[in-house]
């Protein structure tokens, strides 16, 4: 559950934090309900301005990856459409990659694979 930021990177720091926390939520490394350090704590741990961490947390809240409870802190969201979609998308990508890998191993070309995919897709419905 590390956050690594680089001052020389082209991406602004808040975005680096945003992207990394988002990734950890999507890969389930940060599980639903898990408490995040407060904006102030995160800013202090990284030695950066609170404005920066605040912006990252606001973006994460806007996109629904985390939610905040006044007086209690920020937590990883439980149910979220976009989040689930994105996670599913990732799984699909991985499975397709595996299928492609297998196809390449036994010499199945792209058109043939597409055809197989279309056939299976239609059949299922």
């Amino acid at each position: 559950m590390q956050i690594i930021i680089s001052n020389t990177s082209k991406e602004p720091i808040y975005e680096q934090i945003y992207v990394q926390i988002k990734k950890q939520v999507l890969t389930n490394e940060l599980q639903a309900g898990a408490a995040l350090p407060s904006m102030r704590e995160l800013a202090k741990d990284l030695g950066i301005s609170v404005i920066t961490t605040k912006r990252a947390y606001e973006e994460l809240e806007k996109t629904g990856f985390i939610y905040s409870v006044v007086g209690k802190g920020s937590f990883v969201s439980e149910q979220n459409k976009e989040m689930i979609l994105e996670r599913k998308m990732k799984v699909i990508e991985e499975q397709l990659m595996a299928a492609i890998q297998n196809s390449k191993e036994i010499g199945i070309e792209l058109p043939e694979l597409k055809e197989l995919l279309t056939m299976l897709y239609m059949e299922d419905v």
Binding site: I3, I4, S6, L30, P37
Partner: peptide, 12 residues
Amino acid sequence: LKQMKVTDLSVR
């Protein structure tokens, strides 16, 4: 050398 800062969300 690339300079970076790191933290662990669970260290607190």
